[in-house]
């Protein structure tokens, strides 16, 4: 049996690596994804452009303007003297907020902040910062942030990117590789060989496990080098969790291949599965915010567990004692998916 599996694995590797372009495709896309995601997936506010409207013109109001200018969060790009400018600047998106110092500020301090709410997330962060700056002395409230003291969203996103890349590669490649044999007719040739279905699945998926792990480490190294994301936990533990996670992606890849006739159908189906799973994993949108029914569905979402493990290992340095529950969940989901896919695959062959 192992002899025959070895042959299929060799055939798959040859098929994948023979073509120089596919060799490049194994290395360049994951790195590019990491760079795009890493640099772009950023919800932090720095140097938000604001306009300042000084209705008071006293030393106190000028002092407030200086405080906005000195803050790393803001950059005062306009000083407004005509009322119509407020509308124009916000309409064109030239500034994110307008800070209006009302007349009489030096006697009875009152400030109005107008915020562009188009990007609701930006808006609530900007208005929070502006309020804090205007209120001035907040030493009364002493804030300490754990695990990510600078509140860099990059640290939050990069572990998720690792998962995302691993998912796309292993799920899509396995699914498409199987459907492709069917579409161009080579599946029948494999069927007349003495290969058994289980051997065929193993031979077809194991190369992608190898490729998946290769890319996994590639992205981990790049994430450390390029983005300096802290890695506080154990690499061994993370590797083990990644292996469990791969069970689920390979399982769903094979499952999708059994219900698709053409690669186009496979791609569309994979995407229809991937989008909700990705959106409900907590990658960008916290699962905590979702309606109860959806949170319940998130309990069977493998990505949700894996992203928790990744963030725990990266940022919190969590060990097995804190993470055994999500790992167990991954193992269960993976076994079910892979088992179901093998059963279905056998049926489609007969």
């Amino acid at each position: 049996m192992w002899e025959r599996i070895r042959v299929v694995i060799r055939k798959e590797f040859l098929q994948t690596l023979r073509n120089p372009r596919t060799r490049v495709m194994l290395i360049v896309p994951p790195i590019m994804q990491l760079l795009i995601f890493g640099f772009a997936a950023n919800l932090d506010i720095e140097n938000a452009r604001i306009a300042f409207q000084d209705g008071d013109c006293t030393p106190e109001s000028r002092d407030l303007r200086a405080r906005f200018d000195a803050s790393p969060y803001f950059e005062v790009t306009y000083d407004i003297d005509r009322e119509s400018d407020v509308q124009r600047l916000l309409d064109k998106g030239e500034v994110l907020a307008v800070v209006r110092v009302l007349p009489g500020y030096s006697k009875r301090p009152a400030v109005q902040v107008l915020v562009d709410g188009t990007n609701s997330n930006n808006a609530s962060i900007v208005s929070g910062y502006a309020n804090r700056l205007v209120a001035g002395n907040v030493s009364f409230a002493e804030t300490r942030v754990w695990f990510n003291p600078e509140l860099k969203s990059r640290y939050y996103f990069i572990p998720g990117v690792v998962m995302n890349i691993l998912t796309i590669i292993t799920m899509m490649l396995t699914g498409l590789a199987l459907v492709r044999e069917r579409e161009i007719g080579t599946m029948e040739q494999l069927l007349v060989s003495p290969l058994r279905p289980v051997e065929l699945i193993l031979g077809k998926t194991l190369p992608f496990v190898v490729i998946g792990f290769f890319q996994f480490y590639l992205i981990l190294i790049a994430a450390r080098l390029v983005f300096q994301v802290p890695f506080r936990g154990s690499l061994l533990l993370l590797t083990f969790a990644a292996a469990l996670y791969l069970l689920t992606t390979l399982g769903s890849g094979v499952l999708i291949s059994t219900i698709s006739k053409t690669q186009q159908q496979a791609v569309l189906t994979t995407f229809l599965y991937f989008m909700p799973v990705f959106m409900f994993s907590g990658f960008t949108f916290p699962v905590r915010n979702m309606p109860d029914a959806v949170r319940w569905v998130a309990m069977i979402n493998p990505q949700h567990y894996f992203i928790d493990i990744l963030r725990g290992v990266f940022l919190k340095g969590s060990g097995f004692d804190a993470l055994w529950q999500p790992m167990l969940a991954l193992a269960v989901i993976g076994t079910v998916l892979l088992g179901a896919s093998v059963l279905r695959f056998r049926k489609t062959l007969e």
């Binding site: 929070g128 942030v145 990510n148 939050y156």
Partner: peptide, 22 residues
């Protein structure tokens, strides 16, 4: 004084939570 301790893993939620609490 009042001390605010935050889990910064989700930086976005944390920074909004911080400004609300402050």
């Amino acid at each position: 004084s009042v001390q605010l301790l935050l889990d910064g893993t989700d930086s976005n939620t944390a920074s909004i939570a911080r400004s609300y609490a402050e």
